[in-house]
């Protein structure tokens, strides 16, 4: 399996993701600097979390125009898989590869905590097909701009096309239903073809062994499984 992690100035989850991928696949993914113009053939591109370009202008706006993005657009046009996490999700919306926008959290606070997610039973996401829709996942979030917004027409089409993949839901203490004000409790969406997934939670921080949860491992495993088959 050929996986590339795209690194921008200010990315800070690239190495955590590299360790997570290697622990699941036994193979170290390539780290690709954003100034590179092309990509060798890959099965999955991962855009990691962080603060690309210092979050200047809008989160992900400057990264969305980096040289590597042309290669990612080509990869997507060929039906290639892309996973964007947190800032990676923001870069995907800013580059137009995913609909909507990630606005400032409703409470105007950076939120860093474990949250509970439900898998949308109606999702058309090809990358998470093996996830159990009845189970919930415990994966942490860490963001200031994760408040998913889209106009009502876009939101309706996202919902009716099954593009919502994960939603924030109540945890066992029933305290963290919607941490940031996201419309329809949206935590992750996918592209129309189901191959581009953007999510605010950080699966690489829920890999078991010292982490509070191993559900991120479960989620990444389902993605890697989908790519092989």
């Amino acid at each position: 399996m050929r996986i590339a992690i795209i690194v921008f100035p200010g990315s800070n989850c690239d190495r955590d993701m590299m360790v997570a991928v290697e622990s699941l696949t036994g193979r170290r993914p390539a780290l690709i600097w954003h100034k590179q113009n092309n990509l060798n053939p890959i099965d999955l591109a991962i855009i990691p979390g962080g603060f690309s370009f210092g979050d200047y202008l809008r989160c992900g706006a400057l990264a969305a125009h980096s040289p590597i993005m042309n290669a990612l657009h080509d990869h997507a046009a060929r039906g290639g898989a892309i996973l964007g996490i947190c800032n990676g999700f923001q870069i995907l919306t800013e580059s137009g590869m995913l609909p909507g926008f990630l606005a400032r959290n409703q409470e105007l606070k950076f939120i860093c905590k474990q949250i509970t997610l439900s898998v949308n039973g109606a999702t058309s996401c090809a990358l998470t097909a093996s996830l159990d829709h009845k189970e919930t996942l415990q994966i942490p979030i860490a963001h200031n701009e994760g408040n998913f917004f889209a106009d009502s027409e876009t939101l309706n089409s996202i919902e009716s096309n099954g593009q919502v993949v994960l939603r924030y839901t109540s945890d066992k203490y029933a305290t963290s239903t919607n941490p940031n004000g996201s419309l329809n409790n949206i935590a992750a969406i996918c592209s129309l073809n189901g191959k581009i997934l953007g999510m605010m939670p950080h699966p690489e921080r829920a890999m078991g062994k010292g982490h509070e949860s191993a559900d991120g491992r479960k989620l990444l495993h389902s993605i890697f499984e989908a790519i092989i088959t």
Binding site: R58, A61, T93, E94, G100, F101, A150, D151
Partner: peptide, 9 residues
């Protein structure tokens, strides 16, 4: 249109 404003919001 290219960069400075995001037409979604």
């Amino acid at each position: 249109e290219a960069l400075l404003a995001n037409a979604v919001i």
